[in-house]
Design a protein around this nucleic acid. Structure first.
Lengths: 226, 226
DNA sequence: TATCGTATAATTGTATACAATTATTTTGCT
DNA sequence: AGCAAAATAATTGTATACAATTATACGATA
């Protein structure tokens, strides 16, 4: 499971190495089965093998590389199917989060969620894409925090981060943001009204729709098939 | 997320350290917020700090410890609520696995699954608890392999392993194994008959029932509340 | 006594050194 | 030339060394 940014400090050498390699993999700069050599990467980033090795171990745990003992580290990469699977998994888990949020969300979180949606609607009407993206991410963050489960929060944050990196490879979605905000609103309203089933269902659909949109925008073309 | 045993080699020093600490945490030998010191653990296991540090990084990623830069590594531990959450998450994901298995399972996997169930029924009638446990684990492994998703397989294996360690702390379940086998059979039959909805539903319920059984057998008493 | 500041020790972060394993090249033979 | 074996180089695994940071102990001062 991996990884929160809160935990993986970005400012240690190891943290920097980890983030760099991770990005390179998620954004497709490394290809599947590429071999990563400790010394080469260390030199490229100006650090010794020690932090590189530690970063490798974490990447291995995440499944982004695989380490063959005494041989080397090889990029596992992610395929179009992997992305699809992650969205389907995430759909289920966001559903759970929404369900649990119904009985765990605090007043403050509820307020922030409502505010988030009103703000998003405003920026959507003005076409402020950057702000919309930030608010979109924040909406999901609030949901994760509100679900009241350390385990689920951890897992969802990991997948969400995964997907964000991936999303940069597909075209930026302008029309989608309108629909997306509407879906956020439905989730929020279900939580506010205490309807667990509805909250779960709306969250399920929201992620499924996000995936469908990615497919339309050329996901398949961005990733290897197998 | 972590971690497959296939990947985390058990025979390197780092692998041994990783497995040792992980077990100690999951089986409750370390308490929440215990501080882990690299040198002390290294000496205890007769290794230097290097493999210990690498193991720490993996454990951090899994969420089992948290590392505060320049300060130390602290056990995060798992509470009774964490265990519950994991079961609920797993319920959803096993459901997905069963659904996907319907269209991805191979003939061989299907045969092994059927054989697994008949064998389990046999051993259940004889009261062979060890064999039942092995077959139970294997049933889930087959399901994970059959779902046809690297991502889901990875995730489920991690949670399953998590839970197995935890389960040792609760009493061994004798009557449960009969019901459990029956549930396996329902999942298998749904997959065999091509009924995706039924497969998902039965897998959901199976995990939920497993959790209910754990609660009856004293889960709460085995783990800290908060 | 209480508290602050400084010195000391303990601990982590990183780099380097050495050992073990694996990959590559060279060499010798047919 | 082609192959095998040996030598060499490259790479990983682990241990140690050193630097930087944090924790602890001690003592001076009010």
């Amino acid at each position: 499971m991996a990884i929160k940014d809160e935990v993986t400090d970005k400012y240690s050498l190891r943290g920097r190495v980890y983030n760099k390699i991770r990005e390179d993999i998620l954004e497709g700069r490394y290809k599947n089965n590429d071999e990563l050599k400790e010394l080469a990467i260390g030199e490229e980033l100006g650090v010794s093998r020690t932090p590189v090795r530690e970063a490798f171990r974490q990447l291995e745990l995440e499944g982004l590389i695989r380490i063959v003992p005494n041989k080397g580290a090889y990029v596992t990469g992610i395929t179009a199917k992997d992305v699809k699977d992650i969205y389907m998994i995430r759909s289920k888990l966001e559903g759970l989060a929404a369900r649990w949020a119904v009985s765990n969300i605090t007043e403050e979180q509820m307020s922030e969620m409502e505010e988030n949606i009103y703000l998003t609607e405003f920026h959507a009407s003005k076409g402020h894409l950057d702000q919309i993206a930030t608010l979109d991410n924040r909406f999901h963050e609030i949901l994760y925090e509100a679900c009241g489960s350390k385990m689920l929060e951890h897992q969802l944050r990991e997948y969400h981060e995964y997907v964000q990196k991936v999303r940069r490879k597909t075209l930026s979605e302008n029309k989608r943001s309108l629909a997306s905000t509407g879906e956020h609103k439905l989730i929020m309203e279900a939580i506010k009204s205490g309807d667990e089933n509805q909250a779960e269902k709306m969250a399920n659909k929201h992620i499924e729709n996000a995936y469908k949109n990615m497919v339309k925008n050329g996901l398949k073309e961005s990733y290897p098939e197998a």
